[in-house]
Nucleic acid binder design. Structure first.
Lengths: 249, 249
DNA sequence: AAGTGGTCTAGACCACTAT
DNA sequence: TAGTGGTCTAGACCACTTT
């Protein structure tokens, strides 16, 4: 037994009862009091034990179930879930942090030009081959060191306000942290691995043939038309994706 | 307007009222009826409009907030969130799928042996340099083609049941899909990019110097002791991480 | 003061599982 | 039949923001 788990709910606390109870149960599981496969006390028992209403207990169980800590089975009970690697989720917080740190982060516009769509671009942006797109290359530096190289094709349509907004160098910041583009409905993202080309290595000041992560994106507007296709290149010694799976206290 | 959104809740449906209302609001947002930054109707208005109790509306708002679709601000209202790239989450479903498909997936044990810990291993597993570990190499093939190369160091402790369990080739399956190890409390995972070595390329039947994803893991038991350190190598043409961000209908 | 979200109650009724 | 989770109600009270 490593640490005592508080056993009651403090009604005078600023932390709401449901959050307190969720933490109590999660800590009990983390401490090994309830092991994977074990059944938790029934909801009625938890109501009596902690002096809260059924609705509040229900909410707590829902929270723990969403966190992947337990699984509730109707008619049988609520059980502690074993570790499941497939539920691990990696997020882009590291990327977000770079753009949030406005003092230390600089976005350099390397190139903007009109480019006519080849077959690949046309397919990604649902255009005809030969139609105009806007091609943008950016280099993102953090603390004086280049960390990301971004290339992007935007649909060219003078009627669309998004084009002007996207051209602004600051738009990337909004895209990562929110509050930016409000004309985008959704994006499809893919991560894979790549080897730096000579050009990429030079810009990113990395040795040639270094391994790098590649984050590809397509963004869609509210009419479900693609408006942007592009990708970030990120040497894997500068940015990693990390996460934890299982019980976090 | 692309599609009509059902405007009432069907009380005779098997789908609970809260789920129906969440879908109604999400579809209205997806259809552009409410745009990023817009305020949703107040909870009291939603109660009257859809004939449900405050608790049910509350639950709906919570669900949409968890999904990152809206943000509720006390005293002000509930607002549609703009697209935020930083909230994108990549999961390991692709990996999970491989192991779930038991017919088509074969795990080959390439090597098991006792290895004494060098400085790097000792640090990862919280051991002294020179202590014994179990070194395992596995090749995972799907539909006759190798997709993953796994190397792993396990702490060597005859008293620990985990060791025997981990040695079984089937244990990877349980780890990914759940129902496996119940002695593991949590894992720390990292994804980065790497270039295949000659040995890796040969085993994975890929050209040398190909880019690959590398998924590193450390697993901890309920005493918070590390029990396993290892990594999967996965050529990026065989497995990608994909996700979507924003509104999904 | 009025309107907003946030928490919580004390039940009701239902669906499902085990015995 | 008894016990389990799952949904839902009709309020209450509170904290916060806006006017």
């Amino acid at each position: 037994m490593r640490q005592d788990v508080p056993a009651t709910i403090d009604r005078s606390s600023y932390e709401p009862a449901y959050a307190q109870l969720a933490n109590i149960l999660r800590r009990q599981i983390a401490a090994g009091i309830f092991r994977p496969g074990d059944r938790l006390p029934s909801e009625a028992q938890l109501c009596r034990r902690y002096g809260v209403s059924p609705m509040t207990v229900r909410r707590v169980i829902n929270i723990l179930a969403e966190q992947g800590v337990v699984v509730a089975e109707q008619g049988r009970g609520t059980f502690v879930k074993p570790l499941e690697l497939g539920t691990a989720a990696f997020n882009l917080e590291e990327f977000q942090r770079i753009f949030r740190d406005e003092e230390q982060t600089k976005v350099t516009l390397l190139e903007i030009r009109i480019a006519s769509a080849d077959e690949r671009i046309a397919q990604k942006l649902a255009l005809e081959v030969g139609q105009r797109t806007i091609y943008i290359r950016r280099l993102i530096s953090h603390q004086e060191a280049p960390v990301l190289y971004h290339r992007e094709y935007l649909i060219y349509d003078p009627k669309r306000p998004i084009v002007e907004a996207e051209l602004e160098v600051t738009s990337l910041r909004g895209l990562f942290n929110g509050g930016g583009e409000s004309t985008l409905k959704r994006g499809e993202l893919t991560i894979d691995a790549t080897v730096l080309t000579k050009e990429e290595a030079q810009l990113l000041q990395a040795p040639e043939a270094t391994a790098a992560l590649r984050l590809e994106h397509i963004f869609y507007d509210f009419e479900d038309h693609p408006v942007s296709w592009g990708w970030f290149i990120c040497p894997s010694d500068r940015l990693r994706l990390t996460t934890t799976v299982g019980i976090q206290e």
